[in-house]
Amino acid sequence: MKTRFKWRNLYLWLVFIILYAPIIFLIVYSFSQGTTMNNFHGFTWSHYQDLFADSRLIAIFLDTLLIALLSSLLATTIGTLGALGINNTTRPVTKSTLLALNNILMVSPDVIIGASFLIFFTALKIPLGFGSVLLSHIAFSIPIVVLMVLPKIQEMGTSLLDAAADLGANNWQLLSQVIVPYIMPGIFSGFFMALTYSLDDFAVTFFVTGNGFTTLSVEIYSRARQGINLEINALSGLMFLLALVLVIGYYFINQYSSQHRKAVRGRRG
């Protein structure tokens, strides 16, 4: 019994080591002197200094952040309203059709999304650059927002809305003072997911970005094609920290929302 227990832990640990080793490897070498990822040559901050002195990369980083924030804000707004609309459909056929359409962009390979958006922007003569990237990011983030918000709306039930309407709330009051506060955890999760989708996207952006504008993922791709550059390692160190912050943030939102749910259930029951 005891030996079996050890074996199973060994396997799990092995999977973990394989999953995390490349990431740790990258970050360790961001502190290495020299120019390759082959031998550790002693500790240095110089790659981070290079990174912060690289004004082009910093501009790209800020652009990426701006795109991520703007696109997730807009996607969250449109997606939340869309989820409300889907929830309000009365015919089951309409609802399932809307949900199926909603999920198309979730299951499509990135290449298809990128290529078809490129044709779409060209057909409408929308210039490629900041605008087209922003529109694409909004577009592929909307479905995940809907999927995060919809369960919250369905959980709300109708009695709360009926009560508010009976007490004379108009549509706007209903939305702003009853519905939105209730589904806020779902909206937050949706916003978070949209943010990380946007920060991480490479393939779609690569297709619709044109010549003048780049995001971090595209920049990393073009630099990585030229070979090893420890500045990218320093960048990955920073992005790892950012991912960590996002995961922890997401975890706390989920904790909050599950506590919230329990509290509501407790009150009801």
């Binding site: 995390y20 990431i23 490897f25 390759t36 082959n38 490479f202 791709y221 992005m239």
Partner: peptide, 25 residues
């Protein structure tokens, strides 16, 4: 297990360029 999916895909690919290179680890 899920944490690594939050790291940018390109960075993970880039790590393997270093790991698998001629004189790599």
């Amino acid at each position: 297990i899920i944490m690594p999916t939050w790291i940018n895909l390109l960075l993970k690919a880039y790590a393997f360029i270093g790991i698998f290179s001629q004189a790599g680890i």
